[in-house]
Design a protein around this nucleic acid. Structure first.
Length: 875
DNA sequence: GCCAACCGGGG
DNA sequence: GTGTACGGTTGGC
């Protein structure tokens, strides 16, 4: 597709073999490589020598002459660990010349200090290698189980990783996402539990035009359904199999039913172990482990879009939930004609109107395809860099799961020893100081600007050359630098690529993948003893520089008379003078940016009409187009009663525009609605998730009663399942203690429809809630979140519920929020732009008093808090 | 306030 | 046998 730059071996590996779509390696040194050539896929057999990094050869001394230096006996000397170039990758030669030396264990000494992983030891099979080490470790004096000792001093990676690291190959060279043959299947079952239900339908589609269902209307058909599903997968021969919650539902269910019916799950690619494998194996003790189970099959990559969604939301935090339907709607993937059927209704619907369920299930797999396109581009791109399987990269953590294998590959390739115990002694270091967090003022500010330091930690690493001291190759810094440069190229290409084009998708995926790695480099150094190349001192140096730069930005803004609100790690909120335009704000930011060290970029992230600053990381923002954004737990209510949520949003909106009469109206109307019971009970009910079984609750009930369970019992329900969500509310005249007087409010429908409003019809008649209780909750839990916005006496007056006009009340029109304003007398003096600065103009500010915000705030409450650690996320 | 248990998501 | 390591929230002490 686009021009391929020469491969940077640290970033991409070095072997140019194109089109690899799957790799399977076993512990006997066999590797199977499937390569896509257009519409066909070829399977190539290869061999590799299983290897391991070792700090010592002591455990192998007992081998005597059976232990040899790699290549010492002449011959090609191409143990897989040697950096064999080219696509031959040890095939043929190792196998051919191997028989005489097949039993031989060989080693290669690497450059490094005596305490490092200074040897790569390899053998014809993993078994032989591990056996030899085990035997040696058993002879070694010392306490502890031999198994423990076998681990100490060695660094192991999985078979596929060994193969990819040894050869320098990666997946997907020369391919774009749409070249992959992806297949989605989705089971429809009569129950969530395979012990109590069965599969009655499966929808299957793929990226080559397939869209069908396989059905088993009668229980006796299920065996055939499973066999047909497997046969269809094998016939279509996809590279990738996908579904939402594939590992959590479809595969476990399929596995259980296939076992029950005695059908083998033949899903693998021809020429390889055909069966679906599961790992880790279920522990023998049948204790119900709810652990993440994963599956794998030779020749195909199994992708669970739920994992991709979780990963996306970890950064974006913008999803309403992680369910397929929610997410598809959120990304605009759901078609307008989408058929929805509530989970519990699916089978019943199928019996009556099978077409509806067919459409529903086919819509499901179509949405999975859409999600895959949307979310798996970055993992696809990563698979072209890191020496791991695509399916692993789709869920691996970016630091330990991706960066570290890249580093290990670099060291193996360079013949350099891996550092051992790099993190030792770090326990003595003083507590790790992270990013700085400051709260400068609480109250309400207008004309708020957010600036942030772009990719702060990686930029600092580059600017000050801060990498792990133990990284003798400088590989981490090299990778960060390369990726930063390459990413800019992809971002440029992205801008010029036609919208919706393949090319655009490619560049976007590449830049996203690179960003992920760049941003994880700092976290990797700070990862502690788990990471081979951990370096707390280096990580501390990065955060120290970060605090330095942040305070430089803060002081620069302060000196220019801006009203500081809060600063967190790499970003600052401040209020600009009320008469400023966006251009002026941007000019100010550019001016501050110009003073920062080389390689550190300050960005104008956005502007807001107003902000309520409550606590560090707890604030509400009002955008210029009227959207309310609430951040932080302190401003959200944990109670989540609908009436309170509605009030809070209204109240925040009014407060942010300084409309105190509107705020008062919102409050009074809510109080009135409660008092007059014009709100239905559903509006005051809270949703609780049950965690205890009926037995467990009844046993503990003597000491401790809980509202939700009491509500169920009072309603005559003595059976429920943990995990069920129930609504309940406090009823009129209840004494409330220990859950007495709570009433269960059954859900009237389970529809996943987007219909969020007007869904309370059937509950309209219930009004017997405890008015006093909910009025109190309104004041303390909801209105209380506005406390920082007003002076105490104003707050008290606004949210008094006795309805008596206070004797000393001020007219509400005179009450104002505690404004946080910047120095009113700030004047601007235009200056000449700095040479080479294309920005339209920079400004210097002159603040006559030279003060910061403290004495400039009318009412705002300036304060300072000590720095605290903060999580790091960038851009 | 801290730690352990639990949930998510799927029909 | 493709190890160790999901991460955020809740609730119990």
């Amino acid at each position: 597709m686009t021009t391929a730059p020469p491969l940077d071996p640290y970033v991409f590996g070095w072997d140019p073999t194109p089109g690899i779509v799957s790799v399977w390696a076993d512990r006997d040194g066999r590797a199977l490589v499937w390569r896509r050539e257009g519409e066909r896929v070829v399977c190539e057999r290869d061999r590799y020598r299983p290897w391991i990094f070792a700090t010592t050869l002591a455990d192998l001394a007992h081998l005597g002459p059976a232990l040899a230096v790699e290549g010492a006996s002449g011959g090609p000397g191409d143990g897989a660990a040697s950096a064999s170039h080219g696509s031959a990758a040890g095939s043929g030669s190792t196998a051919g010349s191997g028989s005489a030396r097949a039993a031989t264990i060989t080693y290669r000494e690497l450059d490094g200090s005596p305490t490092d992983y200074r040897f790569v030891v390899s053998a014809p099979t993993s078994r032989a290698l591990e056996r030899a080490i085990q035997d040696g470790a058993a002879r070694r004096p010392g306490s502890g189980a031999a198994k423990e000792r076998r681990r100490e001093g060695y660094h192991r990676v999985g078979p596929v990783e060994q193969y990819l690291m040894g050869t320098g190959r990666t997946y997907f060279r020369g391919l774009v996402y749409d070249d992959l043959h992806r297949l989605q299947f989705d089971l429809e079952t009569t129950s969530l539990d395979p012990a109590r239900g069965r599969i009655f339908l499966v929808a299957v589609r793929d990226s080559r035009g397939l869209a069908t269902t396989i059905e088993a209307p009668r229980p006796g058909d299920e065996r055939r359904l499973i066999a047909e599903l497997c046969a269809l997968v094998r016939a279509r021969d996809p590279d990738v199999v996908e579904n939402h919650n594939l590992f959590g539902f479809d595969l476990p269910f399929l596995e259980a039913r296939a076992a029950q019916l005695g059908v083998p799950l033949l899903l693998g690619r021809t020429g390889a172990p055909p069966l679906l494998g599961r790992y880790p194996e279920p522990p023998p003790d049948a204790r119900r482990r709810r652990r993440t189970v994963r599956y794998t099959v030779a020749g195909r990559e199994l992708i669970d879009t739920l994992e991709a969604v979780r990963r996306h939301d970890f950064v974006a935090r913008d999803l309403p939930g992680h369910g397929l339907k929610d997410v598809a709607r959120h990304f605009g993937i759901a078609s307008p004609e989408r058929t929805y059927v509530a989970g519990a209704e699916v089978y019943r619907t199928y019996l009556e109107q099978p077409d509806i369920v067919r459409r529903y299930a086919l819509d499901d797999v179509a949405e999975v395809d859409g999600l895959s396109r949307r979310l798996l581009g970055a993992p696809f791109a990563l698979a072209g860099m890191a020496p791991r399987r695509y399916e692993q990269l789709a869920s691996a953590g970016p630091a330990m799961g991706i960066l570290e294998p890249m580093l290990v590959r670099a060291y193996l390739h360079a013949g350099a020893a891996l550092p051992y115990g790099a993190a030792r002694g770090e326990e003595d270091l003083e507590g790790h100081a992270g990013g700085a967090v400051h709260l400068f003022a609480t109250g309400v500010a207008e004309h708020v600007v957010k600036v942030d330091i772009a990719s702060m930690y990686p930029s600092l690493m580059r600017a000050y050359k801060i990498g792990p001291a133990c990284d003798s190759l400088g590989a981490l810094l090299h990778i960060v630098s390369q990726l930063t440069t390459l990413r800019l190229g992809h971002k440029d290409a992205l801008r010029t690529a036609p919208p919706g084009s393949l090319e655009r998708g490619h560049h976007d995926a590449m830049q996203a993948a690179m960003k992920l790695l760049i941003n994880s480099a700092y976290g990797y150094m700070a990862a502690g003893s788990m990471a081979l190349f951990a370096d707390r001192r280096a990580a501390d140096e990065v955060t120290r520089r970060g605090r330095e730069v942040l305070s430089q930005v803060v002081e620069a803004l302060r000196a220019r008379g801006m009203a500081l609100l809060e600063a967190d790690t790499d970003g600052v909120f401040f209020a600009a003078p009320l008469d400023w335009t966006e251009a002026r704000e941007r000019a100010l930011v550019a001016d501050v940016a110009s003073e920062l060290p080389d390689g550190i970029r300050l960005e104008y992230e956005g502007r807001y009409r107003a902000m309520l600053s409550h606590e560090v990381k707890n604030y509400a923002l009002l955008t210029y187009d009227g959207t309310l954004i609430v951040r932080g737990v302190a401003l959200r209510s944990s109670r989540s009663e609908p009436f309170g949520e509605r009030f809070l949003r209204r109240a925040l909106g009014a407060t942010l525009i300084g409309d105190v009469p509107a705020l008062q109206r919102a409050f009074r109307e809510t109080v009135q609605a409660l008092t007059e019971r014009s709100l239905p009970a559903a509006d005051v009910a809270t949703r609780v998730r049950l965690t205890k079984t009926p037995e467990a609750y009844l046993a503990a009930r003597g000491e401790h009663r809980e509202a939700a369970y009491e509500a169920l019992l009072a309603a005559g329900r003595d059976d429920w399942a943990p995990g069920e969500r129930v609504r309940c509310y406090r009823a009129n005249g209840a004494n409330g203690a220990n859950g007495k007087g709570y009433v269960w409010l059954p859900d009237e429908n389970d529809e996943p429809s987007a219909d969020a409003t007007g869904s309370e019809r059937s509950q309209d008649d219930r009004r017997d809630y405890d008015v006093d209780h909910y009025v109190r909750a309104l004041v303390t839990s909801y209105a209380g979140r506005l406390r920082k916005a007003f002076a105490p006496e104003d707050f008290a007056q606004l949210f008094r519920t006795d309805r008596q006009g206070g004797l000393f009340d001020r007219p509400v029109e005179e009450i104002a929020p505690l404004w946080v304003r910047c120095a009113a007398t700030t004047t601007l003096v235009a200056t000449r732009p700095a040479p080479g600065d294309e920005s339209p103009g920079s400004f210097m500010t002159k603040s006559p008093s030279g003060t910061g915000l403290e004495d400039a705030n009318g009412h705002g409450q300036p304060l300072r808090k000590p720095s605290r650690e903060s999580p790091k996320s960038f851009e």
